[in-house]
């Protein structure tokens, strides 16, 4: 499949039963386009971490994806508490997650670092009390990484 495609998934805060389904759907879409497995894995992992952040911290949000022959771009926009110090949040191991989230296997402070590790470009914009936008891009061109 060639050309561009895009779409959006809606996310509900604390909906742990469906947490991850948007990333799972995105993975299926990438597979249908015949994108190499290692790139799909990176995109899926980054999307899943970003999706979990919305589910854990925000009231609601959406995941918008755009796939072109050159890139996969994923934007997660949420209505949530915002991130007061993005630099701190990017540090491995830094987390503000409550204990019940840690007991679910998340909130160990590896989420944003994991997105960064897998993406070619990561942009985070956040306003405390309003919400956060996480945008990452993964290149599909051979010279991309």
């Amino acid at each position: 499949m060639t050309g561009n495609s895009d779409g959006v998934f809606f996310l509900t805060g604390k909906d742990f039963a469906n947490a991850g389904s948007a990333s799972s759907n995105l993975k299926g879409i990438l597979e249908k386009r015949g994108i190499p497995a290692e790139i799909i894995r990176r995109a899926s992992i980054a999307a899943f971490e970003a999706e979990m952040n919305v589910i854990i911290y925000a009231v609601a949000g959406m995941m918008h994806y755009t796939i072109t022959p050159e890139t996969i771009k994923v934007v997660l926009q949420d209505m949530g508490p915002g991130i007061p110090d993005i630099g701190l949040a990017m540090q491995e191991g830094y987390s503000t997650a409550p204990d019940y989230i840690r007991e679910m296997g998340f909130g160990s402070g590896m989420g944003l670092p994991n997105i960064k590790r897998n993406a070619d470009k990561l942009t985070i914009n956040s306003v405390v009390g309003e919400g956060t936008t996480v945008e990452f891009v993964i290149s599909l061109e051979r010279s991309g990484r």
Partner: peptide, 28 residues
Amino acid sequence: SDVLAFSVTNSLLITGLTNAQVVRTAEV
């Protein structure tokens, strides 16, 4: 998140967690 950061493809995951996110993690 550690699984997502450090595990490799085609591997076995051993865990004490049983929620749906474990299967999602394995999938992605």
